[in-house]
């Protein structure tokens, strides 16, 4: 019983502190997810077009960001880019966090959007074109609405990965959930394990619904033989 009272006091005194961290984690991850999804969708569409040079550039970008750990990317964007002496590349830690996380998200989203567009049968585009639609019209009215449904399950899993990646931001001093926990541990070194478990539970509460949604959406897509009806 004494243990519970003791731990409850820890929770009680830390909860505003940790909630502030969770709120920042939420904000940073949501902004990056939105920016990254927009950028990734555009790049994914570019990758399915027939312009070879932009396609190669986008391909290079995707490999660059998927081939290196996020930790390395954040170090490069936060420490290396400012040393280039270009004014608008001198990021503070928040901008660096948002920029790196958005680019990281976009590299995944690009691949998802590209494969979703390729998964729409060619006959759809041909039929739209033979009805007199232009290429852009066919893409906008016929291809993208069908492709969009296919992107939902993998997108949800990517968003979970992005949310989890925000924990790495603690190394550049963003006071998100993990960082707040580390600061709390400096105040209460006796409860190290308990505080880390508390942080893990908070992340779980944030990520688990998204994970469940991804699983549910995937079963929906599978049940319809790949043609999603959501």
């Amino acid at each position: 019983m004494e243990w519970f009272i003791d731990k409850w006091q820890v929770i009680d005194s830390l909860s505003p502190f940790l909630m502030k961290g969770l709120w920042l984690t939420f904000k940073v991850s949501m902004v990056s997810i939105i920016l990254g999804s927009i950028l990734g969708s555009v790049l994914g569409i570019v990758k399915t077009l027939k312009w070879s040079i932009p396609r190669a550039l986008v391909g290079g970008y995707v490999h660059l960001f998927r081939g290196t750990p996020y930790l390395v990317q954040i170090y490069i964007i936060y420490f290396v880019l400012p040393s280039l002496d270009v004014t608008w590349l001198k990021f503070d830690s928040y901008t660096a966090a948002i920029v790196s996380l958005s680019l990281y998200t976009a590299s995944y989203v690009t691949a998802i959007v590209e494969s979703a567009i390729r998964a729409v049968p060619r006959g759809q585009e041909e039929a739209a074109r033979s009805c007199g639609m232009s290429k852009a019209q066919a893409l906008y009215h016929i291809i993208l609405p069908q492709a969009f449904k296919l992107t939902v399950p993998p997108m949800a899993s990517i968003y979970v990965i992005v949310i989890k990646s925000t924990a790495v931001l603690s190394v550049i001093g963003i006071s998100e959930l993990t960082r707040q926990g580390e600061t709390a541990i400096l105040r209460m070194p006796g409860d190290t394990m308990f505080i880390y478990l508390l942080i893990a539970i908070l992340y779980f509460v944030y990520c688990y619904p998204m994970l469940k949604f991804a699983g549910w959406a995937e079963s929906k897509v599978k049940a319809n033989g790949g043609n999603a009806v959501l």
Partner: peptide, 9 residues
């Protein structure tokens, strides 16, 4: 639990 918490934690 493992899938919904960050590796760093």
């Amino acid at each position: 639990f493992i899938r919904a918490t960050p590796l760093l934690v």
